[in-house]
Simulated assay, not measured.
Amino acid sequence: MDNLITKVELQKRNKNRVNIYVNEEFLFACSAEIIYRYNLKAGKNIDIPIIEKIIEEDNYIKCKNDSLRFMERSFKTEKQIYDKLLGKGYDNKTIEKVINSLKEYNLIDDSKYVEMYIKEKSKSEGKNKIKYSLLQKGIDENIVRQKLENMDSNIEAEALVKIAENKYNQLVKREEDKRKLYKKLGDFLIRKGYSFDDIKPILNKLINNNDW
């Protein structure tokens, strides 16, 4: 049976890539450059094994280049890179091959990413919010938990006091009712990711004038 190209279709998300249909069925996706280089068009017979080998290598190179461009401005998680490449139309096999290559060169390291993220965010957010954000980025929960356990508690405590005092000074200008002030400040700090056990003594100090 002939392997007849029946349709060459530009991808909607990435106009530089096309979908190739052979005998009315989707066969593979590749860069538009391959189409022009090998004159692939509807109505033409192709040698599938040869074309697939060319396309596989081409996809890998372009996928890797896209991943490096995506990473050049900031460190990314494995899931962020995976989702980005998937959105560009690359297949799972090619993406996994690229990700494994990036890991070999330590260009992807979720453990290091978590350390950097915690160091940056611990100045303005509590553990709960940091944990949620990292899990949303696709980081393994065991990595997140381990790194948060090693988080400097003094830095977190100092940040909490500073954030609480700044917010209190804003709220007290327009709220005189202590109970409402207590609730508003407490809710704000919980949204920032701090636990109520850590928040309570600070609320008592700022609003009820209790000692630390």
Score class of each variant (00 low, 15 high):
127 K>H: 03
11 Q>P: 02
207 I>S: 07
73 R>Q: 10
193 G>T: 08
120 E>L: 08
150 N>Q: 15
146 Q>L: 15
67 S>R: 08
98 V>G: 01
31 S>V: 02
36 Y>T: 14
206 L>G: 06
1 M>Y: 15
36 Y>I: 11
80 Q>H: 03
112 K>C: 03
2 D>E: 13
176 E>Y: 13
34 I>V: 10
117 Y>F: 14
14 N>H: 07
93 K>N: 09
83 D>F: 05
190 I>V: 13
34 I>S: 00
173 K>D: 00
100 N>E: 09
131 K>N: 07
210 N>H: 13
156 E>H: 02
118 I>F: 03
1 M>P: 06
99 I>P: 01
43 G>P: 02
41 K>V: 11
68 L>N: 03
46 I>L: 10
170 Q>K: 11
49 P>Q: 06
104 E>V: 06
96 E>L: 11
79 K>L: 12
38 Y>K: 08
203 L>V: 01
14 N>G: 04
67 S>A: 15
173 K>S: 01
76 K>M: 05
194 Y>F: 14
191 R>N: 15
137 K>H: 06
204 N>G: 14
106 N>F: 13
146 Q>F: 15
57 E>K: 12
71 M>F: 08
78 E>G: 00
190 I>L: 11
77 T>K: 12
117 Y>C: 01
191 R>A: 09
189 L>N: 00
121 K>P: 00
83 D>I: 01
145 R>I: 11
104 E>H: 12
15 K>W: 10
6 T>F: 09
18 V>R: 04
175 E>Y: 04
140 D>Y: 07
106 N>G: 03
136 Q>E: 15
116 M>Q: 13
